[in-house]
């Protein structure tokens, strides 16, 4: 069971990374509209793309 002394610190690092990822995703507005994203897959991709370009002032 000594392996726990390695595994638990490793899991802590993973948790910290996932916490950071979650906070980042919230702050980059990914949870603003949950309804629309669910329907996106039903729509065809178009050739002229509309790449989201996030601007600094919006992320701040």
């Amino acid at each position: 069971m000594e392996i726990l002394f390695v595994l638990i610190p490793v899991s802590l690092i993973i948790v910290m990374i996932s916490l950071g990822a979650f906070v980042w995703s919230v702050q980059s507005h990914q949870y603003d509209d949950l309804e629309k994203e669910a329907h996106r897959i039903l729509f065809d991709e178009t050739t002229t793309s509309n790449h989201p370009i996030r601007h600094e002032e919006e992320n701040s």
Partner: peptide, 19 residues
């Protein structure tokens, strides 16, 4: 939600505006 996606796609295709 379909309206949202239609608007996004159509306006995006104009190429004049971004995001």
């Amino acid at each position: 939600a379909g309206c949202c996606l239609t608007i996004e796609r159509e306006l995006g295709q104009l190429g004049e505006i971004a995001d």
